[in-house]
């Protein structure tokens, strides 16, 4: 469980916009270990999708600037040419996209889309790829996979479509699976089933999973470790227990406070983090969260590094507050 599969160092992703360069990912370090589920949490626009897409260069383009290091299999994928990256995509690292209806080709049968993934990387016959794709659809819990493989995406339910995406994602036994909000469009029971599929996948194949989500309930359910992103940077990182029950960064605290408690009275008005996230081109030199932070002070004018401060050994945060101040800031539910 401990050897790293994917290591990200100093990753920056910038998009050229009419007004200047948008730093969507502003220097991220991240390690993904074998067989773990790492949740990447943050609001929309926090850079979690830009981060994960850039891991396999899916957002490469004339207006995108990706720099830094993504080590995988002894190579830096950021600098790998497209021809080399293609061999990694879909085989070693795959992505399960949110909104499967849009992410699946409406004109191809479900089974064919999975089979295409297989045939892109393996020299197998059409029939063999189809059989394997039917088997995969069964493995992710699609009922009567032989019939449903012949269905077009619009003929399947939302949950089934997402499973087709997942079947596609694991078709070639990848080392890393990036699941980008895989449960966002699904209702709660289907959501639980899809998460179950991901967990089983990790258990059976030892696949490492990066789970991108803004849903802390999903995090609590399946994640081993959690990285919280804000304005293109990771502000806190640790095990699920550490981050959910002993948050160190005021932003994480704010996120947790805004989740209604499962037991106990629900406040008339859920606490929200004041202000809105930074999405523009201009970023402050110091802590990006400071403008919204109730505990900001002079020291926040300098950007704090992500490092271990008052948490456990692997519990990192990017906040200059001292321990008593953090304890006072923590919301009720997580102060145990």
């Amino acid at each position: 469980m401990t050897d790293p599969v994917l290591e990200v160092r100093g990753l920056r992703v910038e998009f050229d916009l009419p007004g200047g360069r948008l730093p969507a990912v502003a220097g991220v370090d991240l390690t993904l270990r074998r067989g773990e589920i790492l949740a990447l949490v943050g609001e929309s626009g926090s850079g979690k999708s830009a981060l994960s897409m850039s891991l396999v260069g899916l957002n490469r383009g004339p207006r995108t600037h990706i720099s830094g290091e993504v080590s995988f299999g002894g190579r830096n994928l950021v600098e790998a040419p497209e021809s080399e990256l293609r061999l990694v995509r879909g085989k070693d690292i795959t992505v399960v996209f949110q909104d499967a209806l849009a992410a699946l080709n409406p004109l191809h049968r479900a089974g064919a889309q999975v089979a295409e993934m297989i045939r892109t990387h393996r020299d197998v016959s059409r029939a063999a790829a189809w059989d394997r794709s039917v088997a995969l659809l069964g493995e992710v819990g699609i009922a009567s996979p032989r019939e449903n493989a012949k269905a077009y995406p619009h003929q399947l339910s939302g949950g089934m479509r997402q499973r087709v995406m997942i079947a596609m994602g694991l078709a070639n036994d990848p080392a890393v699976l990036i699941a980008d909000e895989p449960t966002t469009a699904l209702d709660v029971t289907i959501q639980a089933q899809v998460l179950g599929v991901l967990e089983r996948l990790r258990a059976d194949h030892g696949t490492s999973i990066i789970l991108i989500t803004h849903d802390l309930g999903v995090v609590a359910e399946v994640a081993d470790r959690v990285a919280v992103m804000y304005a293109g940077a990771i502000v806190e990182q640790g095990t699920r227990e550490e981050v959910l029950f002993a948050p160190q960064h005021p932003y994480t605290m704010g996120l947790l406070a805004s989740v209604p408690p499962v037991d106990g009275p629900i406040a008339a008005r859920l606490p929200a983090i004041p202000g809105s996230p930074l999405t523009g081109i201009d970023r402050p030199a110091g802590c990006a969260f400071a403008p919204r932070c109730a505990f900001a002070h002079d020291a926040c004018a300098e950007r704090p590094a992500l490092t271990r401060r008052f948490g456990g050994p692997g519990h990192l945060d990017a906040c200059v507050l001292d321990e008593p101040a953090r304890a006072a800031a923590r919301p009720e539910g997580s102060r145990s």
Partner: peptide
Amino acid sequence: DFVRTARMKGLAEGAVVRRHVLRN
């Protein structure tokens, strides 16, 4: 979105265009 999916599969750009973009 499905064009991005096709690229994610590791398809060469030519195959992405032929199999996914053109038909649609």
